[in-house]
Design a protein around this nucleic acid. Structure first.
Lengths: 162, 162
DNA sequence: CGAGTCGGTTGCGATTCGCAACCAACCCCC
DNA sequence: GGGGGTTGGTTGCGAATCGCAACCGACTCG
């Protein structure tokens, strides 16, 4: 259980903060990437990532506790478990894709960035927020949040970086 | 300069890995969130986040070195600098939004998840990968990557978690 | 019985973090 | 021209975390 500072001193806790409290660890997103890919068993993940076993135990425990993955038996005699994504965990897919896309586009060793494409039609996917009724990409400045009951988070605007 | 293990033992470095090498730190994404919001000066960020100054110095240095932000003077006499997003940094916007969205939807303290909406028309934004030619959301299984020259990354599929 | 696998737990040295103190450059003000 | 304030750091040090290796219990197979 990697505890953060009990109260991040001045910033009110925003969505990013809460998200990072769950997955903002050096290993956690890599573990989740493996689980997304179908690498679900302790030893598989451990071998694939090269993570220390005690850390993997710890991170998987946190993820289970957070409800991102669940520990289900995949065989009896001997009973063995695997870790599966919950609904909450599957909901991370867009974020993981966006991070992957960014790494491809901006951190590739060879110069050429790769693209994500839609298998069926070969269209390049941008992963921009896309408005289904206006049918075009939505700039970060045109996005706001609609809180359930009176809460809002700080605006994140790329154009504020002018 | 927070060094990772020199060679992440068995996993070949994938896009997620490379991305996390740049922003996979407990503080870095929070720093970037601030910069996106327009909080660009050292002392502002430091105060807003409550991060230790030596760590902030270190993280900002890494981000500058990675080309995610740049350090530009915003006044002479005395010369003072601020940190601005580069093109590369602005490209993180979809990822940041996706993470924020997830935190809103799944980690809110009060029960009701907030939604992202398009200002102009009020449409709820899902941040799913959206195919502009098919005009519908693209499931993770239908996404593949088109590498520039011979490289590919592992498929990330939410449905593999069946 | 002995060896092997899976999924951990325990101990310990090395790294990193968080905090507080200090500092250099520059400003303003008297 | 000395005192005080702000900005953007640097340095030192104790505490928490990490990474590695060793060990372990349950179980299976030969």
């Amino acid at each position: 259980m990697p505890h953060r500072t009990p109260h991040p001193p001045s910033t009110e806790d925003c969505s990013i903060q809460r998200t990072l409290d769950v997955i903002g660890d050096r290993w956690t997103l890599l573990i989740l990437r493996d689980v997304f890919r179908g690498v679900r068993r302790f030893s598989q993940i451990q071998h694939d990532l090269g993570i220390a076993k005690n850390l993997l135990t710890d991170r998987l425990g946190s993820l289970v506790e957070a409800g991102v993955v669940e520990r289900v038996p995949y065989q009896e005699r001997p009973v063995r478990h695997e870790y599966r994504l919950t609904e909450k965990g599957r909901a991370l897919s867009p974020a993981l894709l966006a991070l992957m896309r960014w790494g491809d586009a901006w951190c590739s060793d060879d110069g050429a960035p790769t693209e994500l494409v839609h298998d069926e039609c070969g269209t390049r996917l941008e992963l921009q927020p896309w408005c289904t009724s206006c049918n075009h990409a939505v700039a970060p400045t045109q996005i706001s949040s609609r809180p359930g009951p009176g809460r809002h988070h700080p605006e994140v605007s790329a154009d504020a970086a002018s």
